[in-house]
Design a protein around this nucleic acid. Sequence first.
DNA 1: CTTGATTATGCAACAATGTTGCAGCAAAGA
DNA 2: TCTTTGCTGCAACATTGTTGCATAATCAAG
Lengths: 138, 138
Amino acid sequence: MEVAVKKLLKSYHLRSTPVRKQVLDLFIQTSHALGKANIEAELDEIDRITLYRTLRTFEQKGIIHQAIDGSGKTKYALCSHECSEHEHHDHHAHFYCTRCEKTVCMNSITVPKIDIPDDFQIASAQLILSGTCKNCQR
Amino acid sequence: MEVAVKKLLKSYHLRSTPVRKQVLDLFIQTSHALGKANIEAELDEIDRITLYRTLRTFEQKGIIHQAIDGSGKTKYALCSHECSEHEHHDHHAHFYCTRCEKTVCMNSITVPKIDIPDDFQIASAQLILSGTCKNCQR
DNA sequence: CTTGATTATGCAACAATGTTGCAGCAAAGA
DNA sequence: TCTTTGCTGCAACATTGTTGCATAATCAAG
């Protein structure tokens, strides 16, 4: 897997550095979206600023996307394969569990077609769902 | 109008203070959502912490709601009349213009019914649209 | 109109997050 | 191995979020 991550980075024209490999690997192994605090907790000793820039770079390259969930914290999740540097395709829903505070991408749910006044040009649409997830229900 | 704002505050069981009147008045006169920085710029000399608490209070009482727009900044807008302390009804879309960075509520657009896996209990749903608004198109 | 109970304000202080500049170091290809 | 290019980590600072506390203002009762 070490090799896979390396290849992945290379395919995005990014250098394989320890930080990037760790962060990317963490995203691959995690099923929910991750905030900076989460990542810093998982990867001890990681530099705050380097992480900030790593996430920014990954986002620009289309490796990860922001998972806006209304929690006020910026979270990120792996993009689906159609994302690229030039176009993000994160038009799926994000579900935020208010109990465990985890956010997951729901790739199966895409944002329905919306009827908009002509005055507005829509470039992207996102759907935020919140409630309680399976694990948090009794 | 001075009187109207006062009455409005009273109807929410809030004391009429200069700060609250100013902030509420600003919301009434503004057609788009406002972030803390916007408000501080408009109302010079306003105390940062007081503003923070004022917004929190207004939100709790159902006077304003957060307009999440993916910009990373928390913005607020007036609630429609159906909101109360106990239930927010901000299930309309928010449109974020990436050029002028203004966010507007689109009360006419409600979030469509979504088909969700049984595992999840949805408590609320929000729709974020972004692109360019009328003014920012040439 | 005064007064007293209650609530709001503003300051201090701190945490978390976002952001840039820069010097030194590491990666990738020649 | 060397050189170029890009990444890292530190310093430094801005913005936002948040709580405690003493003082001041509001509002209703008298």
